[in-house]
Simulated scan of single mutants.
Amino acid sequence: MNKHKFIQERRPQWKRFEEFLQNSSRRSLSKLEAEQITEFSQLLREVSHDLATIRSRGWGHDLISYLNDLVARGHNLFYGAPPTNIAGFYRYVSIDFPRLFRANIGYFLTACLLFFLPLGISWYVVQNNPSLATRVIPEEMMTRFDQMYSDQKDTESENAKEDETESEEEFGGSSFGDERATMAGFYINNNVGIALKCFALGILLGIGTVYTLLFNGIFLGAVSGYVISQGHGERFLSFVISHGSFELTAIAVAGGAGLMLGNALIHPGQRTRFQSLQVRGLEAVQIAGGAAVMLVVAALIEAFWSPSAVSPMLKYIVGSVLWLIVFLYLAFAGLQSDQSSLPVSQLEPSEKSGERHSA
């Protein structure tokens, strides 16, 4: 069967399935008659099989994109359930988010390139030539950094002469602040704000996301290079290593979600840009939500652990473990359920073909 004949025969089923998607919602689908639900399920399997066939024969990217969107929406509608309780939230964090992240990992890798590469270059350049920091960092902020780490150094010297209880009180009264719960709220607001900006600006064809990633990468790299060049390397690195694992990774994840929005607008396939944004935007929002959860974790670590009066070596050890945990979480969490729970659009053609034949 050639491509033209195949499309002619199958197009009515695709349109019928699309009508189901347009007229249904997660809530109303359960209220359909049993015959309608059966028809929807059958159409979902058939469209999945059609997608596998077209992919295997290479019959055009636009057609693949169109059917891929139909299958993804159908699977989410038929199998999905809104996380309305703790169990639902736990499933989202432990399974749904990491596997959705892996299914769209290309956007994350692009965001990493746009964020971490400028960060590393800026860090290296400013650390070796601190005078360049003024081109990126406001002078009043540089003065604040000098004060903060100098005050911390003085506090540590005083603490060494006092007993353990007084030492903890002095450190708690350092420039990092006594009210750590308040600081946690500040960090959450600040960090989530950056991530949401990376994500939301993707609506500007991805240009806003690219700019935000580049800007924050250059700025954070300049700050790191400057602080270390002033002789505060150990204090700075021991402070940021723990929460940095969640914080920096989450910014890149949110940036990847923003790039998904931009790509949906630039390459809508056979849909209008608004329809494409609706389809891809749902996954992007879910990924951005996962980044927000990671940033909340980062903020709590930054407020309660990072400024604690423990040895830098212990902070390095804990920080290294946290970086490993972040990697293992994103790479392997929910992996066993990938084949059973992943949107059908992400399954291999052979699996979808087998699903139809076994139905």
Rank of each mutant, 00 (worst) to 15 (best):
K3F: 13
N190D: 05
R102E: 14
G106N: 07
E9Y: 03
W123Y: 00
G258N: 05
N2E: 05
Y107L: 02
L132I: 08
E247F: 02
I207G: 09
R135Y: 15
E140A: 14
G221A: 03
S229F: 00
S25G: 10
G354T: 10
E156G: 03
T38E: 06
K31V: 03
Q275R: 02
D96V: 14
E39T: 00
D163T: 07
S311I: 09
W123S: 00
E18T: 08
L277Q: 11
Y211I: 11
T272A: 04
F145M: 02
E179N: 15
M1D: 12
L220Q: 01
V47P: 01
M141I: 05
G88S: 07
H49N: 12
A250G: 12
E139C: 04
F236P: 02
G60E: 15
A72G: 08
A298L: 05
H61V: 15
A72K: 04
D50T: 08
A288M: 09
D151P: 07
R27W: 13
L213D: 10
G354W: 08
W123C: 00
M142D: 09
E234W: 06
A200L: 11
P98M: 15
G106D: 08
S122C: 01
E140N: 13
L100D: 13
S353T: 13
S306H: 10
F89V: 11
G290T: 06
L43M: 00
I241E: 02
D338S: 14
S25D: 14
S65A: 11
V321H: 08
P312I: 05
E170G: 08
L261R: 00
F239C: 06
H357S: 15
H357N: 14
Q13K: 01
G255S: 03
F115Y: 09
E33G: 11
C112L: 10
S122V: 00
Q230R: 02
F89A: 09
E283P: 06
S311T: 13
T212K: 01
V296Y: 07
I251G: 05
G334H: 05
G319E: 05
E351I: 11
G290V: 07
E162V: 14
F186P: 03
E168M: 13
E35S: 07
Y226A: 01
L328D: 12
S41I: 00
